[in-house]
Amino acid sequence: MRHSGYERHTDDWYVEPAWCVHALVKGERPFVGTVLDPCCGGGNIVQSLCSNEIEAMGADIRDRADGMYPRMNYEQSLHALRPTSVVSNPPYGVAQEFIMACLDETKDRVCVLLRLAFLEGIQRGEWFPHVPLARVWVSSKRISMPPGGTDIPAKGGAIAYAWFVFEHGWKGDPVVKFLPKVGEISA
């Protein structure tokens, strides 16, 4: 099965470009407290958040960054590191469970990069009214996410992606927005 326009990675590890993290930060209100990426892979999201002067940390189920981040599954890292918010590109197959676990362990918001098609489906349609989905930041430019740990270059994205922002205390329908442009956007 193909994800992100590439052959499927064993652990669903795909590397998001820094520009899409910078665009999220530009669009969202400022992050306060500590932000965790519990599926940080090589640390792209953590590094992008830190470059925007956001206190960020990461963890991953595998060591993908030469010991830079603790090796824990996302549930362990949420419990052990107690973040205020989460920003992550989680494995798509566990996205709904991941979001619920993050909401249980955070106080501010959970931002997840997922296929725009995450909005579809009868079961998810029944789930959405019971969670605080506040914003969906659609990327006008297709995001290319090659498999992690490879030298496969980023190519033109084949799948539509968006940042889904679940905000504690949000009431009402989610707002659909488009990611703001940030500097020179490259693949």
Rank of each mutant, 00 (worst) to 15 (best):
M68L: 15
P83F: 05
M72Y: 05
V94A: 13
P90W: 06
A101D: 03
G93V: 06
Q76A: 10
S88H: 11
I99F: 14
E97R: 10
D66C: 10
M72E: 06
R82K: 15
C102K: 01
P91A: 14
V94H: 12
V94I: 15
Y74I: 00
H79T: 09
Y74T: 00
A80P: 09
S85L: 06
E97C: 02
L103C: 03
V87A: 06
L103H: 05
M68Y: 06
N73P: 05
M72S: 04
Y74P: 03
Y69F: 15
R64C: 09
V87R: 03
V87Y: 03
R64L: 13
P90S: 14
P91Y: 11
E75H: 01
P83V: 05
E97H: 10
M100V: 09
Y74K: 00
D104M: 04
S77C: 08
E75D: 00
E97L: 08
G93K: 08
V94S: 13
R62F: 13
Q76I: 01
R82S: 12
A101C: 05
A65L: 06
S77H: 08
M68W: 13
M68P: 00
Q76P: 06
R71P: 01
M72G: 04
S85Y: 07
Y74H: 04
A101N: 02
S85H: 09
D66S: 11
F98Q: 02
Y69M: 06
